[in-house]
Amino acid sequence: MDKVPILKMGDTLILAIQVELHDKMAIRLQEDILKEIHDTGARGLVIDVSALEVVDSFMGRVLSDTASMAGIMGVETALVGIRPEIAITLQEMGLELKGVHFALNLEKGMELLQNIGEIFYGED
């Protein structure tokens, strides 16, 4: 399993990262996401990391970069399911995840993006 499936639900793309990504996989994932955004015209991206037990600086960087790239393409990104211990690690590493929204779980992430979408684009 070296490809992370990207699901589409309404205007939102959903992907769950379940294994630690190595360099090649990370770059491929970024490409896949951006292509998918371009193809589908999605407005939201939810990345679920609840299955991850470790997030190192590389992983943090990949997530942050992906969110920035998606942001440039007009997509709001929500990172959901960060575990307490990972939250502490990320915070201690001082890794700044700019332009990313956070939610406790997938459901809340979807809700959050919905709300943001309403504020920015109005209901359509």
């Binding site: 990172l79 939250a87 915070q91 929204h101 406790l104 992430g109």
Partner: peptide, 12 residues
Amino acid sequence: LRTMQAAKLMGA
């Protein structure tokens, strides 16, 4: 502040 940042990462 650090505590709050960590809480924010968890969507709170």
